[in-house]
């Protein structure tokens, strides 16, 4: 990880869409009126959703003015969390978990495949222009390591073969289904199927 770079071609303006403005009102209701700046994180995420999965500076300013915060405070938050992208990402955005359990189970091989198939460096858009990847810290799915997150979905229990298939499907814009690639259902043990309440260990 390094400090996120701010994209050099910034849009001039940003405004929440009407639909999102309604969501903003909902979000603001969660916090006491005098602490409305607490809403900075959900609002940044909303802005990211609205703007093709990245946050332009104009959006940070817009949110800062909306919540009556200094620009730098919003900027601090946006640079702190890996969840916020400050430059454009591919339509299929692959986040490879490389924290200890995933790494032990072979996340480095996934990273290598990403380098070969998508782009040689993190946060670079692929040649065809629809994918990008980055390494992230733990995504909380250690039980099905190694795993990647593609847009909103988890692809779990990967190996070299399945990863390559997934990556190629993404490049061809026909993404495969998310979930376990070793036939597991959710996070249940591989051989005996246990659902809640039955025979639990």
């Amino acid at each position: 990880m390094s400090v996120k770079k701010v994209y050099d071609k910034q849009p001039k303006e940003f405004k929440f869409s009407d639909e999102n403005l309604k969501k903003v009102e909902e979000i603001l209701k969660r916090y006491p009126k005098k602490n409305k700046k607490s809403a900075v994180m959900p609002l940044l995420y909303l802005a990211q959703r609205q703007n093709d999965n990245w946050i332009p500076l104009a959006a940070m300013k817009y949110i800062a003015n909306y919540l009556a915060m200094p620009y730098i405070s919003v900027y601090e938050v946006a640079t702190f969390y890996t969840m916020y992208n400050l430059s454009p990402v591919g339509k299929h955005f692959i986040q490879v978990c490389t924290t200890t359990p995933c790494l032990l189970r072979g996340a480095d091989k996934i990273v290598k495949l990403c380098k070969e198939n998508i782009s040689p460096n993190e946060n670079e858009i692929s040649k065809k222009g629809n994918c990008s990847w980055m390494e992230v810290e733990c995504l909380g799915a250690c039980v099905s390591a190694p795993m990647v997150q593609i847009n909103d979905d988890y692809y779990e229990d990967l190996d070299e073969k399945s990863t390559k298939e997934i990556l190629i499907s993404l490049i061809n814009d026909k993404p495969l289904k998310p979930g376990s690639y070793r036939g597991r259902k959710n996070t249940s043990p591989e051989k005996i199927l246990i659902s809640n309440g039955e025979k639990h260990a």
Partner: peptide, 16 residues
């Protein structure tokens, strides 16, 4: 003035 980034990569800077 603020601190951007995190951990080892934390940096002190003025806004832009």
């Amino acid at each position: 003035i603020g601190a951007i980034g995190r951990g080892e990569d934390m940096q002190i800077t003025t806004y832009l």
